[in-house]
């Protein structure tokens, strides 16, 4: 979706505010609880990483831009729990459980499940066809605007780049996000000259790459 989360190249957000490397991992105790609950409920419900990203992208634009990182996580988690029928809006208002629990697809999250959280998932899958593009080949990204989740950022649509690496065959986020399945595809690192993306005045020493799924790409003629 063409949402505010897709912010590569937007102006006006001001300077980056570096942070001391000695700063704590969490800046308030509730942030840590939000992260832990999100991870735990993701595992217990079998929600894919892209389903969770999509939920955050669907926050209203003013909420997305006006919330801190963990506020966004909290709002998206609570909405997913409601949308999937795990909790009720009346329970949120009451601050307590009012109804019987719903069965969770993977069962309740207990301390015994810890290692599943700390081990990153694997996203590569067996390929059903050879890779369409070769390293060094010129490709053009498609000009697509799906209303749902995609990982092709707006600033990199409709531009010519070069295949630099072939990263294997990976779960396709655009379908994984909506529960339509994994539909694995070849994944490529595609590198663009900054002047291709940002025009003739762009920094001539800058190159930008994205990780692009095969269906995002056409051969450049």
């Amino acid at each position: 979706m063409d949402g505010v989360h897709d912010m590569g190249g937007m102006d006006g957000f001001g300077p980056v505010q570096p942070e001391s490397e000695r700063d704590p991992v969490f800046h308030a105790p509730w942030e840590a609880r939000v992260l832990a609950m999100t991870r735990a409920m993701g595992v217990a419900n079998g929600w894919t990483i892209d389903m969770q990203r999509f939920a955050r992208e669907e926050l209203p634009p003013h909420v997305y831009l006006g919330s801190t990182y963990y506020q966004k996580w909290f709002l998206a988690l609570r909405q997913m729990l409601i949308d999937h029928g795990r909790i009720g809006a009346d329970e949120v208002a009451a601050g307590h459980a009012l109804h019987p629990a719903a069965p969770l697809p993977r069962g309740a999250f207990t301390a015994a499940n810890m290692e599943r959280i700390m081990r990153r998932g694997t996203f590569d899958r067996p390929a059903s066809a050879p890779a369409r593009f070769k390293v060094g080949e010129r490709v053009r990204t498609k000009n697509i605007h799906p209303a749902t989740h995609t990982r092709l950022p707006r600033y990199a649509r409709g531009h010519v780049g070069v295949i630099e690496r072939i990263q294997g065959c990976h779960v396709f986020p655009d379908t994984a996000a909506t529960g339509e399945g994994e539909h694995p595809q070849w994944l490529y690192t595609v590198v663009f000259d900054a002047r291709e993306l940002w025009g003739a005045d762009a920094d001539a020493t800058l190159k930008v790459s994205i990780e692009a799924f095969e269906s995002y790409l056409d051969p450049a003629v």
């Binding site: 969490f26 840590a32 609880r33 992260l35 832990a36 609950m37 991870r39 735990a40 409920m41 217990a44 909290f74 988690l77 609570r78 729990l81 795990r86 909790i87 329970e91 949120v92 601050g95 307590h96 459980a97 629990a101 719903a102 969770l104 309740a108 999250f109 207990t110 301390a111 499940n113 810890m114 959280i117 700390m118």
Partner: peptide, 21 residues
């Protein structure tokens, strides 16, 4: 409040959340 609801429903053990943190 959300953690209370999830705990009361038995979806998650607070100790498991502590371990993640």
């Amino acid at each position: 409040a959300l953690e209370t609801i999830l705990t009361e429903k038995g979806y998650v053990e607070p100790a498991a959340l502590d371990a993640i943190v």
